[in-house]
Each structure stands twice: as structure tokens, then as C-alpha cells.
């Protein structure tokens, strides 16, 4: 079972890697989102897959009965999902602001636009006098 998942993980990673190497920063962030999905699946797979019961101890027992899924990777992934969520949102908002202030999301234009910004029309000029 892990074999199939490994292929899926690899494909998601490839998609993430590809997008990370694009000129458009939005696509970079989408690449990151893909990568974090891929990493979560990777950790999940690396902890071995089980079609058994969820890692929950039934009423009346003091330990899981029968085959249960590996709980530790699940806890790790939960943590990673939440962290990834926070970072992703931050990155997206950073892009939004970058666009508002500089006027581009293209990696090869950032430097030039820093010297000659073309902010989005209609927004107030926020730059403090130097």
C-alpha cells in the first residue's frame, strides 16, 4: 500500500517543486501549499499505513483492541497542518501587500519595481518620507 502512496507523494512533490520555481509568486505559494500537502502525506506514509481502526481506545478497554493506525504520525501531521496553515496564510497576505505596494508579483521584476514602484491605483501612499 505504501508503494502507491509513495508515487502519489512523489507526484505532489514534483508539482510543488515545479510551482516553487516559477516567476509568478502566486504560483510559488500554490507550490508551497502542494508541498505541505505532500509532506503531510509523506509523514503519514512513512509511519506506515493501516486499514485498521483509528487509534482510539474503546470504552471499557485500557488499550486499543485489534490493529489500530499508528497514532504518532497523525499527531505530528496535525501539528504540521496547523503550522502550515499559519505560514501559508502569512505568505499569501505578504504577497497581497507586496502587490499593493510594488505593483508586481513577478520575481524578475521585484528589484526594478522596488526602485520604481507602481502601486495599485486607488490605494493611499503608505511610504513614509525617508
Amino acid at each position: 500500500m505504501e508503494a502507491y502512496l509513495a508515487v502519489v507523494v512523489g507526484a505532489v512533490f514534483a508539482g510543488g517543486f515545479y510551482l516553487v520555481m516559477r516567476r509568478n509568486l502566486l504560483r510559488f505559494v500554490f507550490g508551497l501549499i502542494l508541498l505541505s500537502s505532500g509532506v503531510n502525506l509523506l509523514v503519514f506514509t512513512a509511519g506506515r499505513i493501516s486499514r485498521g481502526a483509528p487509534p482510539i481506545i474503546p470504552e471499557g478497554a485500557s488499550a486499543p483492541v485489534g490493529e489500530v493506525a499508528n497514532a504518532l504520525p497523525q499527531a505530528l501531521i496535525l501539528t504540521a497542518i496547523v503550522i502550515g496553515f499559519g505560514l501559508t496564510v502569512f505568505a499569501m497576505v505578504l504577497l497581497l501587500r507586496l502587490y499593493e505596494r510594488l505593483g508586481t508579483l513577478r520575481t524578475d521584476q521585484l528589484k526594478a519595481y522596488l526602485e520604481a514602484p507602481q502601486p495599485v491605483p486607488g490605494l493611499p501612499d503608505e511610504e513614509a518620507p525617508a
Partner: peptide
């Protein structure tokens, strides 16, 4: 999302990305 422009780097990126994906699969 369409703003790309510049030299076409899709093939290079694609090759690296596929190699990377394959590597991850292999390691996993």
C-alpha cells in the same frame, strides 16, 4: 496568475521537479 514572461524555464523547472518527485518517491 498569468504574469509569467521572461525566458521560458518550464523545461528546466519541469526536469528538476520530476527528478525531485522521483527522488522523494524513491526515498519514501
Amino acid at each position: 496568475l498569468r504574469a509569467e514572461g521572461g525566458r521560458d524555464t518550464r523545461w528546466l523547472s519541469g526536469a528538476i521537479a520530476i527528478a525531485g518527485g522521483a527522488l522523494i518517491t524513491g526515498l519514501l
